[in-house]
Nucleic acid binder design. Structure first.
Lengths: 187, 187
DNA sequence: AGTGAAACTAAGCTACTGCTTAGCTATAGC
DNA sequence: GCTATAGCTAAGCAGTAGCTTAGTTTCACT
């Protein structure tokens, strides 16, 4: 006894996800979402409650899409080779969405670093701890590597993420494949 | 034959720098700058032209303040120990400004990653390539380390900075000292 | 003391933010 | 075919963004 929705929520959220991925949360306005999602602000707010709600669903959508790649990583028996493949797959996913950005969760983690947003933090922690665990497991399983070296590399990764390191972000996404190649060929 | 300025540009820029350092460019409003710098918007605009102008000068100010630490790093003869000291000095500089954030240049590099802002990019590249060069030089000079391992560590650093890595940003600034300690004690 | 130029204050400009609401339209059940 | 209900459109809300400007004050010079 009422009118039908003229859109499918999963479909419009996927479009929102791409936009948030490209611009980040703060740099994406409700007007931009309106255009990209192809629905009116009213529909957006009645479906997802707020801009924040749209963002949360977008992250969940991203997380869901990454699950397939993570399952593939889990299933791989070769430690380092599996992780390398995972990086390639991630880039493929980005290209598919015509997106030059890295990982949406990492970007969000950076943008919300000083924020107290519990729902966002929870989603990030859930995603990253899971993946970190799988990485460690895969690397441990690789008997060809010295554990001491792996530990050091892990710590370097953490320090770099802390942003205290001053390694530049000058290089573009294009050169990334080369870096991955360079890094993993020595492992 | 005119009125005197009631403020010193270097002094108010230092206050702007601290604010930008804490909040980033976009999250710092002209009203906030007005209060922090203790001058009126008109004065701000007549001295620096725009919010962007204030930001550029703030980065230059930061860069200048870091020069002292960089000179100390250059003068050090012990490779890894010098870099470790540099990290500690950086934290000290942050604490001095009652600031929990990492490096302003790194933060800016992240915030302006997809931007086309040439002046900002130029300042970032200048700062980072210089420091990266010094790091490499210092590490090369340390004969106690295997060059292969160093190369790998450098690449990891780059990959992590690219944001493709999914190492979490969950850890706070407080734990950072421990991480530095952990990382360098194995070097 | 009077004058011109620069620095000051405070109000106001337009554009945009996230979000709401009044009024119209399509639909399922009777 | 009528009605209740939910979705739709588009205008508009208050708040804030970066920036400008009209009007006033201070000062070095004559």
């Amino acid at each position: 006894m009422a009118r039908k929705k003229e859109y499918i929520e999963e479909e419009v959220i996927e479009k929102a996800m791409v936009l948030f991925w490209r611009n980040g949360y703060e740099m994406t306005s409700v007007r931009m979402l309106e255009k990209a999602m192809g629905i009116n602000q009213f529909s957006m707010y009645s479906s997802f409650g707020s801009k924040h709600g749209v963002f949360l669903e977008s992250i969940k959508c991203y997380s869901k899409r990454m699950s397939a790649l993570i399952e593939k990583l889990k299933a791989s028996n070769n430690g380092v080779e599996g992780i390398k493949q995972f990086f390639y797959d991630s880039i493929l996913f980005s290209n598919e969405k015509e997106n030059e950005k890295g990982c949406l969760i990492t970007n969000t983690s950076n943008e919300f670093a000083e924020s107290e947003d519990k729902m966002i933090k929870e989603l990030i922690v859930k995603f990253t701890t899971n993946l970190k665990g799988i990485f460690i497991e895969k690397l441990r399983a690789d008997t060809s590597k010295d554990e001491e070296v792996l530990a050091q590399q892990g710590n370097y990764l953490l320090i770099a993420k802390q942003g205290l390191s001053v390694a530049s972000r000058v290089y573009g996404q294009k050169e990334l494949n080369d870096y991955i190649e360079m890094t993993f060929k020595n492992l």
